[in-house]
Design a protein around this nucleic acid. Structure first.
Lengths: 341, 341
DNA sequence: CGTTTTTCCGTAAACGTTTACGAGAACACA
DNA sequence: TGTGTTCTCGTAAACGTTTACGGAAAAACG
């Protein structure tokens, strides 16, 4: 059915070696022969079989993206992976690379899926998302010497891999800045209780800004909860019950913010009126919630494209003549001012 | 680095044929030998190279999922693909199948990406989403004899492929039913202007229910627009300007509903108060919008799993001894009553 | 003990590529 | 004409599997 390089060779009465060289643009083939090969390839509708190619070259030309759902994640998952994936895939496709999506089992730090991809050599490299502060996937890939890049930083693995992250520290800082400028002194911070690295970065920025403004950090105003609506709903009252309740809350996650606002509403507190609310990562939900939520927005599709570039720059097979580079970048977020603060 | 079947053979002083047979559970290998092979495989950390396997067997053990963004789609894409993909991938993984994600170029009906996957044999089958009423991807795959399944029906390709769809017709019907029961007689329907098949199905249900209730279909109350917020925003005033404006609107898309509500608000009309609003496919946005939007909700993750099963049942390599079957299913939606109607 | 059957394993080909190597022909140069 | 160079191509091996085939040894059977 599908034509192979042998079919072309037989059809043209030349050897398969020449056909292959002609197709791959090698120099040692007569211009006329090459022309005939290309024509025949078009006529016979030839495309190289990727399995054969992979086997010979030891490279699959596909990149695995591993997405690890959080335990207890809500039905629709993290909305921002689609645009990120779009960018990632677009740039990879320009290099004729495929994107394989691997999802971990929710609820556990599973390496099994990852291990399978690596050991059966189904992909040439891996992109990790949802990086933990200490991430066993990173440890594993580092030790295995398998190329990878991450969306988000981690304390694991050192600086040996490319990573692209959002500047959560600066966002936490700016959020406090903005609230202080609007007269707030009692500012709460609510973040996920998971080991997710961004939760730590966010808190660093939050603390730094408070110090700069000479405001003492009150542990009662910092709380961790499940990274979903329920988490925000459960943990917000906790902060409100402190001896000296906050007048503003920064949520480190959109879903938690929605749950938190629900809790506030039930306590008769109106976000944007009686309580300032800022969300660190903007999603469409923030735009449509009532009140609309002030939030920091990342540019996801460009990030996807950029991380693809960074990964490729670290791979010997794709890096230019100037050699491989490990690039790490931290991108700023754009503040979208809305009604809630 | 990675050990091959040759390493095992050398290590055990037997032939590679025997090793392969032992690993694959073939009968013609001594129980004792098999034991030794399995142990050695574990010790040497052996996993079969997928490229070699694919080449020999003519099957890649990976399934491609093609997602085609709509022209002018908003930043975050369709939120429901992540849970669907989760289910799809989970079931495929149980059969040791990988999931490859292929995104078409937004704005065009591009077959190029698809063609590449098929012709270079990078996947054993394809899953299509965003099916059009007349879908050239389906035509192409049918003609090429390449196995595929679709999320959503189409008029293309006949009944030769498995498909799983949501019962948009019934949802349109039920929405009208519900509105009529609440006293409405002037009910508008707003759907995307694209060739997307669900838009037609929805309208069929809408018309059917109106007829059953003896209400004449008013063409002025049916409008098409871009499948995003802007589309809803632009087209809603159009319906409102009709000689006999509606008292209720059914939106066939969540983003269009949000845009529509914005337009209504600007006209001084309050959804859920002065105007009943129902949305056909529920997303988290519907739950957080103010007012919360009554909507029909699909169960996406189970659908993903089910479509994987249906696809596998149609593939000779995976169908059980009872042979391959083409399964087509249409799943009902669950009405989530909220404040907007 | 001779014959047949069964058990087990090695050999080798095949999947579709790429590529190192070498060889023949053409050409340049003296 | 002899030698060296360049151009072009064919040959064959290699990547890591699976599997058809055949054969030797062991077991079963009379």
């Amino acid at each position: 059915m599908a034509s192979s390089i042998h079919d072309l060779a037989r059809h043209l009465n030349i050897s398969i070696g020449t056909v292959s060289r002609a197709l791959n643009g090698r120099a040692d083939v007569n211009a006329d022969t090459r022309q005939r090969v290309l024509e025949a390839a078009r006529k016979l509708n030839y495309s190289p079989n990727q399995s054969g190619r992979s086997l010979r070259q030891g490279a699959t030309r596909s990149i695995a993206f591993m997405l690890q759902p959080h335990p207890g994640d809500q039905q629709y998952g993290e909305p921002f992976f689609i645009p990120f994936l779009t960018g990632l895939q677009a740039r990879l496709a320009e290099h004729d690379l495929d994107l394989m999506v691997v999802m971990g089992e929710p609820g556990q730090y599973q390496q099994e899926r990852l291990r399978r991809v690596v050991e059966t050599r189904r992909a040439d490299a891996v992109v990790l998302a949802n990086t933990r502060r200490e991430d066993d996937r990173i440890e594993y890939l580092s030790k295995a010497g398998f190329p990878f890049a991450t969306l988000g930083r981690s304390q694991s693995g050192g600086d040996t891999y490319p990573s692209l992250d959002i500047d959560f520290e600066r966002a936490g800082d700016e959020a406090v800045d903005r609230l202080v400028a609007r007269g707030h002194r009692r500012i709460a911070a609510i973040r996920p209780s998971l080991d997710l690295n961004f939760g730590y970065l966010f808190l660093d920025g939050y603390r730094k800004a408070l110090k700069r403004h000479g405001i003492e950090v009150d542990p009662d105003l910092i709380a961790d909860g499940f990274i979903n609506e329920t988490g925000g709903y459960q943990v917000t009252p906790q902060v409100m019950r402190s001896r000296n309740p906050p007048t503003a809350i920064i949520f480190n996650n959109d879903a938690m913010a929605l749950g938190g606002c629900k809790a506030l509403a039930e306590m008769g507190i109106k976000p944007g009126h009686d309580m300032a609310v800022i969300v660190i990562v903007d999603t469409p939900l923030c735009r449509y919630f009532s009140p609309t939520l002030t939030a920091f927005r990342p540019s996801l599709e460009p990030m996807g494209r950029r991380l693809a570039e960074m990964l490729l720059a670290s791979l010997p097979a794709f890096a230019g003549p100037e050699g491989t580079r490990i690039i790490r970048e931290v991108w700023p977020l754009e503040l979208i001012a809305r009604e809630s603060d």
